[in-house]
Design a binder for these strands. Structure first.
Length: 454
RNA sequence: GUGGUUGUAGCUCAGCUGGUUAGAGCGCCGGAUUGUGGUUCCGGAGGUCGUGGGUUCGAGCCCCAUCAUCCACCCCA
């Protein structure tokens, strides 16, 4: 008999773990709902044509593909296999479905397909697993959960402002107080490029500077040199790439450091409006404008977000931004969207490291009822049914065994209370209520028991 | 896709330069005059040492391959 195992990068979530994960999920859901988002779910698998070409070449490589059912080799001949250069042809032939890679593309697909069902602006949240055929490592899994919220169909910066408030509320409620939200704007990145006199692809520039916090300035300048940047440009860039705290004079700092241009005024106006919408709330939001933040420029066109927890040893726990034309690829141009996504698994890992799950160590069930014999077994069963009628969760130990075994079980499940009944209790219509933390015990009538457990 | 790390009991690991029946802690099961757990004591079950090959009189230990794992890079939550 072979020992069973799990596919690489996937995990089981035992009940003890699920309690904690649900705590995080529920917190995020409560906050999302508070801001008017409604739930959406989409299938685990999408047509490969929906997924490919949306995440760049790297992304396409990381897509899990699902082998067609039936004779998937039909129509292929030996020549197709000999032409090693064109694996794509074979792939397209034998797989037409894939596992979703994120929740944003399925959302775009949904919006395009269901315009009759939704009204713009469309606000939805979606908490589901996604799959990437990456090599697993710390904080990186092949199956992981994203907690997305997006607004589609409005350009208003109110959405961005709301997301900053959502970040604050979620992290505060999870006791992840030393979080930081980095924010940047595509237009400001363009202004940075113009300031240093860079004329090439913005992508080239941003890929290099995005690594700043990881490889430091030395690494970045080396990479820039390799990509044909002049030393003066590199130096100027270094002076520019600082972080500006939202609490202080961000606008002044930008006005001062960036060269005048169309991109500059567009970027600054957006930040100004965002600040105006946040009002004095901004003081508590732990937001920094970070000119080196340049994530996923493939489709972000406006504000870009990234959230991280200091001293967690983990990369970002959330990312997001505005994309002007995501639904365009599915034939619906001109619809703007903006969204964020929490990485549930990373947040969970950090919280577990910091022991932030106090209060999630009990089962939902309030009390385990124990007994000594056939008669008291039926007696406790009746009590359990009464308790449940009163809205109190209760469980009866299902076998007649030594009390020691039953208490042992209660202890392992970490029940807060155990109710014990034997012939004496049956006679008096009472129960022994035992507090499992303290070990204390008291003889109670049914009404007293209900009061105590409520 | 590239580089490195580690694979011994359910879990965490020990096993000296290759030498008899492979160990510990935790966990699990049973028990300590049968109506009381989390502490203690006693007893027990459980491993073809990741897999396949090689070197050797002899391999958990050395060599090769393979699979898995974790970590780093690329990229990303």
């Amino acid at each position: 008999m072979q020992k069973p195992s799990l596919p690489k990068g996937t995990r089981d979530f035992a009940p003890q773990i699920m309690r904690k994960r649900l705590h995080v999920i529920n917190t995020i859901v409560e906050v999302y709902r508070k801001y008017g988002f409604e739930p959406l779910e989409t299938p685990a698998m999408e047509n490969l044509s929906t997924l490919t070409g949306k995440y760049g070449d790297e992304g396409d490589k990381l897509l899990f593909k699902i082998l067609n059912n039936g004779n998937f080799l039909e129509g292929l001949n030996a020549a197709d296999f000999e032409a090693e250069t064109d694996l794509n042809k074979i792939t397209n032939h034998i797989a037409e479905k894939g596992l979703r890679y994120d929740l944003t593309v399925p959302l775009a697909r949904f919006v395009v397909q269901n315009q009759h069902l939704i009204s713009l602006p469309f606000k939805r949240y979606q908490i589901q697993p996604v799959w990437r055929a990456d090599r697993p490592q710390k904080g990186r899994y092949r199956e992981f959960w994203q907690c997305d919220a997006d607004v589609i169909g409005t350009d208003s910066l109110l959405c961005e402002a709301d997301f900053l408030l959502i970040y604050h509320e979620v992290f505060t409620r999870l006791h992840l107080n030393n979080y930081e939200v980095k924010i940047n704007h595509r237009k400001i990145l363009e202004a940075v490029a113009e300031t240093i006199g860079y004329k090439g692809e913005l992508m080239t520039l941003t890929v290099a500077i995005d690594k700043l916090d990881k490889i430091g300035w030395e690494g970045v300048s080396k990479e820039l040199a390799e990509r044909g940047f002049a030393p003066e440009q590199s130096k100027l860039l270094q002076e520019l790439l600082q972080q500006f705290d939202f609490n202080t004079d961000v606008i002044g700092a930008l006005e001062f450091s960036l060269k005048d241009s169309e991109a500059k005024s567009a970027g600054i106006n957006a930040i100004k409006e965002l600040l105006a919408l946040l009002g004095n709330k901004v003081n508590s939001l732990q937001v920094k404008l970070d000119l080196s933040l340049a994530r996923g420029l493939d489709y972000y066109t406006g504000v870009i977000f990234e959230a991280l927890i200091h001293e967690s040893g983990m990369g970002s726990v959330s990312g997001g931004g505005r994309y002007d034309n995501l639904t365009g690829v599915f034939g619906l141009p001109g619809v703007s969207g903006v969204g964020i996504s929490f990485g549930l698994d990373r947040i969970f890992d950090i919280m577990e490291n910091r022991s932030l799950f106090a209060g999630q160590d009990r089962p939902e069930c309030k009390i385990l009822l124990c007994h000594f014999d056939e008669v008291s077994f039926h007696y406790t069963n009746e009590i359990a049914q009464t308790l449940r009628d009163k809205g109190i969760s209760a469980e009866v130990y299902p076998d007649i065994r030594k009390l020691k075994k039953q208490l042992d079980y209660a202890n392992k499940r970490n029940f807060a209370f155990v109710g014990v009944a034997g012939s004496e209790e049956v006679q008096n219509k009472t129960i022994q209520l035992k507090d499992m933390d303290v070990g204390s015990q008291s003889q109670l009538g049914l009404n007293e028991l209900i009061e105590k457990l409520r």
